[in-house]
C-alpha cells in the first residue's frame, strides 16, 4: 500500500476512536502506532506529544503531524494530520446537518458518562507504562513530582510546565556532568 494512504488510514482510525481530545488520544495512538504498526518508540511518542503541547494549534493534530513526519516526511505529516481530522469533519458535519436534536437527549448523555469512565481507565493504564519511560532516575522523579504539584495545585499552564522542565533537564544534565 502507498505509505501516505497507510498513514492516513491509521490516523483516521485513531481520530475516530478518540473521545475527548489530546489526553484521551494517547491510549489509542499507542495501540495503533506502537503495538500494531511498530512505527515509533514510546519515547518518540512522548516527545511528539510534548512538542505539540507547546506549539500553536490542536494538540492531537500536531502530535499526529509530527509522528507522520518521522514516518514519511512532509507527505507523512500531511497524511497524518488530514487522517486525524477526517472523521471529525465527517461526523460533525452530519450531526450539524441532520442530527443536532437527537444528540442532546438524556440517554446519549448517560452513554457518554459510561464512556468517560472507560477513558479514565484507559488513561491510567497507559500512564503506568509511560511513567517507566519518563521517570528513570531520582532527578526525573523530582521533575515529575514538581510538575504534578504545579499543575494540580497551582494550575500552572502545561505550556510553562513543558518549557520549564526542558530547562531543568538541560541544567541537571549539564551541571551533573557524568554523575547523573
Amino acid at each position: 500500500m502507498n505509505k501516505s494512504i497507510e498513514i492516513f488510514i491509521s490516523f483516521a482510525r485513531i481520530g475516530s476512536l478518540t473521545f475527548g481530545g489530546g489526553y484521551a488520544m494517547i491510549p489509542i495512538l499507542r495501540k495503533e502506532v506502537i503495538d500494531i504498526k511498530g512505527w515509533i518508540t514510546e519515547e518518540q511518542m512522548m516527545d511528539a506529544y510534548a512538542i505539540a503541547q507547546v506549539s500553536p494549534g490542536i494538540i492531537a493534530v500536531n502530535t499526529s503531524a509530527l509522528i507522520g513526519f518521522q514516518l514519511h516526511g512532509k507527505k507523512g505529516a500531511l497524511s497524518a494530520a488530514l487522517g486525524q481530522v477526517f472523521p471529525s469533519i465527517l461526523i460533525i458535519t452530519l450531526i450539524a446537518a441532520f442530527l443536532q436534536q437527537a444528540f442532546l437527549i438524556p440517554i446519549v448523555t448517560q452513554i457518554f458518562a459510561g464512556i468517560r469512565i472507560a477513558v479514565a481507565a484507559l488513561i491510567i493504564n497507559t500512564a503506568t507504562t509511560l511513567f517507566k519511560k519518563g521517570i528513570i532516575d531520582i532527578f526525573s522523579g523530582m521533575i515529575f513530582a514538581l510538575a504534578f504539584v504545579a499543575i494540580v495545585i497551582f494550575a500552572v499552564s502545561p505550556v510553562y510546565i513543558v518549557i520549564l522542565s526542558a530547562i531543568f533537564g538541560v541544567l541537571i544534565k549539564t551541571l551533573g556532568g557524568k554523575k547523573v
Binding site: Q53, R116, A120, L130, A147, V152, L164, S165, G169
Partner: peptide, 28 residues
C-alpha cells in the same frame, strides 16, 4: 536535544497523570 527530552519526559508523565486525575474527579 537529549538533555531537553530528559527533562520533558517526566513532565509529560505528570501531564498525563493530571489528565487522569481530572477525569477521575469528574466521573467518580
Amino acid at each position: 536535544l537529549l538533555k531537553i527530552f530528559y527533562g520533558i519526559r517526566p513532565a509529560v508523565a505528570a501531564l498525563i497523570a493530571y489528565a487522569a486525575w481530572e477525569i477521575i474527579k469528574v466521573t467518580m
